[in-house]
């Protein structure tokens, strides 16, 4: 008998978006409430793993043609770049800066360079998790 994953795949298509939205929310709320780059990245990776469970490695690679090792490297660059940006202003390494800006829709918002650092963490976590899972999944 041929197995049929249609229920799993349909549910996955809906759920993955919800999980990714929630992970982004966790990521952006890290400064004032529990959350941040690590848990956000882990949850995004969780959504991608759900895709891998419902479909197979090849299909997911077609949907998202991403080399996760490069994602890790880009994440590291983000984090180091944010930290090393302090060198340009001759202040100690890792010194962050923030200010209030009036944005079109959001209104008065505080923007902090720590978010860029967190983006680095987020990308590294997604990259490393997905590299581990894909590498284990591929080798037989």
């Amino acid at each position: 008998m041929k197995t049929n994953d249609v229920i799993l795949q349909t549910v996955t298509k809906v759920t993955v978006f919800i999980i990714i939205l929630f992970s982004l929310r966790l990521f952006f709320s890290g400064h004032y409430t529990p959350g941040g780059g690590f848990i956000g990245g882990l949850m995004t990776a969780g959504a991608l793993v759900l895709l891998l469970l419902a479909f197979d490695l090849k299909t997911v690679a077609n949907i998202l043609p991403i080399d996760y090792k490069i994602v890790t490297a880009i994440g590291l660059l983000f984090a180091i770049g944010t930290a090393a940006g302090a060198l340009l202003f001759n202040v100690p390494f890792l010194t962050h800066a923030f200010d209030y800006f009036t944005l079109p829709i959001l209104g008065k918002t505080s923007l902090h360079t720590a978010v860029l650092f967190d983006t680095g963490v987020y990308l590294v976590v997604v990259g490393v998790t997905m590299t581990i899972i894909q590498t284990i999944g591929v080798s037989d």
Binding site: K69, T72, L77, I80
Partner: peptide, 9 residues
Amino acid sequence: LITATILMF
């Protein structure tokens, strides 16, 4: 550290 990151690409 920067070198290692760049070499990963």
